[in-house]
Structures are given as C-alpha cells and as structure tokens.
Design a protein around this nucleic acid. Structure first.
Lengths: 246, 246
DNA sequence: ACATTTACAGTTGTCAGACAACTGACTATA
DNA sequence: TATAGTCAGTTGTCTGACAACTGTAAATGT
C-alpha cells in the first residue's frame, strides 16, 4: 500500500479477548483440551486469566462462532468435535513460515485451477474484456523491466486472477481465493515480493499467463484448468526452491 | 453420526449477539453499509437494537474476528475492505439451497482434486493401507445392495476422501475439505441422502472410486487428480440434474 | 421402598453503570 | 502562525447484578 516506512509499527497491546481465545485454542491444538471436554466456568476462567468475565465471554463467543466450542446455558461450554467447525481461517499459529507459504500455495493452486475452469465455462463477454485489459497491463509492465513498480505489478497479477475467479460466478470460490490472497498479501507480502523480484517476471512467465488467457477466450475448460495449475505450480516451486526468504 | 431422529430440533432462541452480527452483516451485503463507512457508536447501536452494550460488543467482536469490520479505540468501528476478510465461512444466508449445494460441490471438486493429487505424491504406506481398507468396506457395501444402511455407506464414502485429504499432509486442504464436508453433512444431509439413494451407488460409481484408489497406489499424481475430479463432477451433475430435492 | 415433585446451587445470557485508554478536533497561548 | 493544552466522544475493560436454564439432591406423597 504505502511505502515501507523506516520504522515498523510497535506491537500495540493486542486485545484481551483475542489473547484468551488464542490461549484456549492453543490448549485444544496441543490436546490439553479434547472434544467433549468441559471448559472451566466463565467465573473461573476470569480468575485464572486475571481478566473480567466480559473478556472471557467475548473470547468464548469467538470460539463458538467458529464452532470450536459449544455452550449450553445452565450447563457450561464444551469443546466441539473438530468436524463441526463452521469456518476456515488461516491460523497464524503455524510458526514455520516456509511450510505455511508452501502449503498455502498448494491450496491456492488447486482452488484457482478449479475456479479458472469454471470461469472458462461461465464467463461473460464483458468479464472477458476486463480480464484482457488487465492482461494487457501485465504485458506492458513486463516490457518495462522488473526493476520498476514491482508492487504494482504484483498487484496487477493478483487482480488478473481475482477477476478470473469472479468470472466463475461461484461465491465460494471467490471467498476462498480472496481469503488466501489477502493472507498472502498481509502476512507474507515481503517474502512474496522478494521472490517476485527475481523470478516472477519475464517472457516465460507472461507466456503462462497468456495460456490461461487464451483458454478463457476459447472457453476451453480443460485448457484453463491446466494452464492455471501449471502457472501456480511453477510459482510455488520457484518459491519453495529459494532458501532465503523470511 | 447418530441416526436421523424423528424430530428436527426446534429453532432454539438464537443468541442476541449472533442476531446483531447477522443484522449488521446483512446491511453490508445489501450495500447499505460500504467499506470505509463508520458504524454507529456502540452506545447508539445499543439503543437502536434495544440490547445492552455487551451484546453489541460481542457482535462487533465476531465481525472483527472475521475481518469484516475494523475498530480503533477512541475513534470507532469501520467496515473493512472486503478483501481483508480473514475467514471463510459458508454462510447460510444463501436462500437458494439448490444453487448453494451446486456451488459447494463445484468448490469441493476443485479442492478435492488438488488434495488427491498431493496425496498421491505424499502418502505413506500406512495411510495407503487405511485408504485401501476403507475402499474394501465401500466395495462390500456396494454388493449388498443400496437399500440397506444407506447412511453408513455415505459416511464411508466421505471417510474415504477424508483419509485421502489427510494423506496430502497439507493442513489447509484438510481444513477446507473438512469444513465443506461438515456443511454438507449438517445443512444438506437430507438432500444428499435422497440423491445417494437413487444414483450414488452401483458398479460404475465404484469404478470411479477405484480409479482414484489405483492412482494413489501407483503414486500417479495426474491420474489421482483427474479421477477425483471426474468422480465429483459426476456427483455434482447427477445432483444438479435432479429437480426434486429440498 | 419407590416414584414424583420441589428446592437449590451452579452456569450461561443479559443488563446497567462506571472508569481507563485513546483519538481527533478545538482552544488558548506564546 | 505554531505549539501545547483541553475536552468531548469512542472503544476497551471492569464490576456487580439479575434472568434463564440445567442437573442434582433433598423433600414429599404413595
């Protein structure tokens, strides 16, 4: 977004309910709390964590919303079966950034390939025109050389595939892709940019994008699927082979 | 899990914070509130909704957790850019059950195909043995005819692909597949079963599963990808062609 | 002795009010 | 004009209270 400032913002005191929720989640992940177990009462948790009950309530409310715990008035709150979770969120709990980004790109590959295939079938002419225009921008940026306006170029590429996803007319695809993308942008942007600077641009990369574009134009479902997959597999592999990020 | 009871559970009085959160979300979906807009203050919302501020706080806390709104102390709460959402949840807000299930199956197809491909590469012998054993159960159930123990059969099939997903060694794939699956099980189980009763079983279906199994055994990445995709596309199409569910 | 009802302690859900921490804008002052 | 101080408004947290509900145990009737 803005230029990278001289100082990173200091770690402002995180909000208490998030801390509590994370703490409880960690206890679940580490099998200290198992499905079916009863959580301590809110009053007791309040004492244990040393915060007010309202904070505990907000924390548990978050977990309930995701289906991680289930509470019954007059009884208590219980750890839910892990299959009942109603939300998918990319937890920043994974400390191995490297592993995380590789797995995330693997997921993105599968999802985006499906979205592109669907888009090849469902796209309207208007959507196709937009996608073509963004591709033109991408090709133009590629000619000017990689040293300049790197961020904007990466954003253009992201936009390219976001538009394709939208053309699939499937909200779930949009949501999943959007979430993965936003996570890559925020948490892993620096690593992403570093990688992009060295290997993400060039005629062969552009050719991969072009293959996707051509398939979409021809409404070639399988072609779009394969081309998209190859493009992201390539990206994932180039990133995985690097030893020097984050 | 358990057998389908005679009575569906009545709609228990939903909790207030969820109501409020849904209401605010609806305002966002309907473009009455747009990204960047400032929410009314908690005190004002408290008066408008006629509930205590703690309820409003919990509701906003949920939205913050999903990245839908962003609040700053001393300033207020604002609608976030839609790209910043940190969670993917299958919202029950889509009233067209038919459309919802089709789109969900489309997503599942893409995701599961990717997971299977990854599993073909990453699986251990032990995981392969488990998958084979579940397949045997599936084949056995198929011989006894479709009239009996339908639920268990469907669950076995779900387990088959859940194990495959686990074999991918990618937590994100597991999470996404698990969430889609749980949603299908809970919200759309009846429609699912009805479809399964008529068209989900038989030698050709089993052959599709078998193709997936064979590819996994041979560590054939592309074979696993294609076989899985065909199997789910088939399932989605047979469901979409039916006019009589839900 | 057994079955039914009642009372009770414990828990979650909601409410009301207060203060702390922080922000943005306004005002006073040099 | 520029700087510092003041202040109202907002979110974050705390405290205490009551309502709604549940499971258990005691009390009661048979």
């Amino acid at each position: 977004m803005s230029t990278t400032g001289l100082f990173d913002r200091i770690d402002r005191p995180r909000r208490l309910p998030d801390e509590v929720a994370s703490s409880i989640l960690a206890s679940i992940e580490s099998k200290q709390l198992n499905p079916g177990d009863k959580l301590p009462s809110e009053n007791e948790l309040s004492k244990q964590f040393g915060v007010a009950r309202t904070v505990i309530r907000e924390a548990i409310s978050l977990l309930k919303f995701d289906g991680v715990v289930d509470s019954r008035r007059g009884v208590g709150a219980f750890i839910a079966q892990s299959e009942h979770r109603s939300a998918f969120r990319i937890s920043p709990a994974c400390f191995e950034i490297r592993k995380q980004i590789v797995q995330l790109l693997q997921l993105r590959t599968g999802v985006q390939a499906g979205a592109s295939a669907l888009a090849a079938e469902m796209r309207t002419s208007k959507q196709m025109a937009e996608i073509e225009s963004v591709y033109e921008r991408l090709a133009l940026a590629d000619k000017t050389g990689p040293a300049e306006a790197l961020e904007e170029r990466v954003d253009t590429e992201l936009l390219f595939y976001r538009l394709i996803t939208q053309a699939s007319s499937n909200r779930y695809y949009e949501d999943v892709v959007g979430m993965i993308e936003s996570n890559l942008q925020t948490n892993l942007r620096s690593a992403f940019l570093k990688n992009a600077a060295t290997s993400e641009f060039g005629p062969n990369i552009l050719a991969e994008h072009h293959a996707v574009l051509t398939a979409l134009q021809a409404k070639d479902v399988e072609g779009a699927r394969v081309a998209t997959r190859l493009r992201f597999e390539h990206s994932a592999r180039s990133l995985a082979s690097r030893k020097d990020f984050a």
